[in-house]
Simulated assay, not measured.
Amino acid sequence: MLYQYRCWLRLQLRSYFLIPLFGINFSLTLLFDNIKHHRHQSFRKTENMTTLFLDIGNSHIKLAEKQGVKWEVVFKASNGSLEGLTEVVEQYPDINLMVVCSVREDVLNKILDVLNFIDVKVLTSSLIDSVSLDYETPDTLGMDRFLTCYGAVSVTDHDVICVDAGTACTVDWMTNEGIYRGGVIMPGLKLFHEMMERKLPELPSVDYYIPTQWPGKSTKQSVQWGTSGGYLVVINGFIRKYLEIIEGETDLFLTGGDSLYLSENLDSSLKVHHRPHLLFDGMEMFWKDLERLD
Results as ranks from 00 to 15, higher is better:
Asp144Pro: 00
Tyr150Gln: 15
Ser218Asp: 05
Arg240Thr: 05
Thr219Trp: 15
Pro211Gly: 02
Tyr209Pro: 00
Met174Ile: 10
His158Cys: 14
Lys217Asp: 03
Leu243Phe: 06
Leu191Arg: 02
Met143Asp: 03
Asp207Ser: 12
Lys217Glu: 05
Asn236Lys: 12
Gly166Glu: 05
Ser205Asp: 06
Glu177Arg: 13
Val153Asp: 07
Tyr208Ile: 12
Val160Leu: 03
Val234Cys: 12
Gly178Asn: 10
Pro204Trp: 11
Lys241Arg: 14
Pro211Glu: 07
Val233Glu: 07
Leu203Thr: 13
Ser228Leu: 00
Trp173Asp: 03
Lys199Thr: 09
Met186Gly: 03
Gly229Leu: 09
Thr148Glu: 02
Ile235Pro: 01
Pro211Thr: 06
Val160Tyr: 04
Cys169Phe: 07
Ile210His: 13
Ile235His: 01
Leu200Gly: 08
Gly182Arg: 13
Tyr150Leu: 10
Asp157Glu: 11
Asp157Asn: 14
Asn176Leu: 03
Leu189Lys: 01
Thr175Lys: 14
Gly237Met: 06
Val233Pro: 01
Ser228Gly: 07
Gln221Val: 09
Pro201Trp: 08
Asp159Asn: 15
Arg198Gln: 08
Ser228Pro: 09
Thr140His: 07
Ala168Leu: 12
Gly216Ile: 13
Val206Glu: 04
Met195Cys: 06
Glu197Asn: 10
Phe238Gln: 03
Gly237Trp: 05
Ile235Glu: 01
Asp157Ser: 14
Ser222Cys: 15
Tyr231Asp: 05
Arg198Lys: 11
Leu191Val: 01
Tyr242Gly: 09
Thr140Asn: 08
Leu141Glu: 13
Pro204Ser: 11
Glu177Pro: 06
Gly188Trp: 04
Arg181Phe: 08
Trp173Tyr: 15
Ile179Leu: 13
Val160Asp: 04
Tyr180Ile: 03
Gly188Lys: 01
Met143His: 03
Val233Cys: 10
Gly216His: 02
Val163Phe: 13
Gly151Ile: 04
Lys241Gly: 04
Tyr208Lys: 09
Asp207Asn: 11
Pro204Ile: 12
Ala168Trp: 12
Val184Leu: 10
Leu191Tyr: 02
His193Pro: 04
Gly182Glu: 12
Asn236Cys: 02
Met196Asn: 10
Thr140Ala: 08
Ser205His: 12
Thr175Asp: 10
Ser218Tyr: 11
Thr167Asn: 10
Glu194Pro: 03
Val171Lys: 08
Thr170Ile: 14
Glu197Ser: 06
Val155Gly: 00
Tyr150His: 15
Tyr180Gln: 01
Glu194Lys: 11
Ile185Asp: 07
Lys220Tyr: 10
Trp173His: 15
Met196Thr: 14
Thr227Gly: 06
Arg145His: 09
Gly226Tyr: 01
Pro211His: 09
Leu200Thr: 14
Thr212Tyr: 05
Leu189Ala: 01
Leu243Asn: 06
Thr227Lys: 06
Phe192Arg: 09
Tyr242His: 08
Val171Arg: 02
Cys169Glu: 00
Arg145Gly: 00
Pro187Met: 08
His158Pro: 04
Lys241Asp: 05
Trp173Ile: 00
Leu200Ser: 14
Gly229Arg: 05
Ile179Gly: 05
Leu141Ile: 08
Asp164Met: 14
Gly216Arg: 01
Asp207Gly: 11
